[in-house]
């Protein structure tokens, strides 16, 4: 068979096969194909939120699982994330228009002195995919950036990321300042980054350490649900 005959025409696939193909395309980091897939599903009157959760997040979940199991590595995950970003760019304005459910709001950034934002960007993207509104502070954030933005945005979650042993102690500075200002319990504080671990998270007074983007999403959902339950009970 020639290559031409092998070529898959996305628009000719039924919905199920198309979503399965989008999983494969995300896995292979094929941005243009993902954008095409998203547009086809929109033409077929899929709700933007359904495309996001079933096709994009569904595909990235497989990528995340295989990364955790050592089947995929960082470069492949970045390519997949880039493909998902392409799809998200189409969906984002539509999600706002259609009033997709909003789970909570997160302020996220790398801490002062740390420019490594790959993990932070992945978490931000997956949080958006899970229905969170994400305010991205970017890199090298001092304590005021976290606290002022969390206050002004009315955030539920403050997320801090660090790749360096030398910068991770700064997370404690932020949390201690929140305690001093009497606002620590107003926010769910999640921390992550390669040199961190659960013990460190506990020691600095974070609510949780998240070892990867998938865990961050699950942890955030759990804490938000708890918060809602407490509010309902209170």
């Amino acid at each position: 068979m020639s290559e031409e005959e092998d070529e898959i025409i996305l628009s000719e696939l039924d919905d199920n096969d198309l979503v399965q193909q989008m999983f494969d395309d995300l896995y292979d980091g094929l941005k243009e194909e993902i954008e095409e897939g998203v547009n086809i599903l929109l033409e077929r009157n899929w709700e933007p939120y359904r495309i996001l959760t079933e096709a994009l997040v569904g595909g990235m979940t497989i990528v995340g699982r295989d990364f955790r199991d050592g089947i995929l590595f960082v470069p492949e995950v970045l390519l997949a994330a880039n493909a998902m970003k392409g799809g998200m760019a189409i969906l984002k304005p539509l999600l706002i228009e259609t009033g997709a459910p909003r789970v909570g709001k997160m302020v996220i950034g790398t801490v002062k002195g740390d420019i490594h934002d790959i993990g932070k960007n992945l978490v931000g993207m997956m949080m958006e995919g899970a229905g969170f509104e994400v305010v991205d502070l970017g890199i090298n954030n001092a304590v005021d950036a976290y606290i002022d933005t969390a206050k002004s945005e009315g955030a539920d979650i403050v997320g801090m990321s660090a790749l360096l042993t030398t910068t991770m102690p700064y997370m404690k500075v932020v949390i201690d300042t929140m305690v001093e200002q009497g606002i620590r319990d107003d926010y769910i504080v999640l921390v992550g980054g390669a040199p961190l671990n659960e013990e460190f998270g506990r020691a600095i007074g974070a609510d949780a350490y998240c070892r990867d983007a998938a865990v961050a999403v699950e942890t955030a959902k759990e804490f938000i649900a708890r918060k809602h339950n407490q509010m309902a009970a209170g």
Binding site: F73, V74, P75, E76, L78, L79, N82, I115, H116, D117, I118, I139
Partner: peptide, 17 residues
């Protein structure tokens, strides 16, 4: 290890800052 031999387009993702 960063895959730059296979995916040179990732260079700025890693080193942009």
């Amino acid at each position: 290890p960063l895959g730059l031999d296979r995916y040179p387009q990732l260079r700025d993702t890693y080193f942009g800052h």
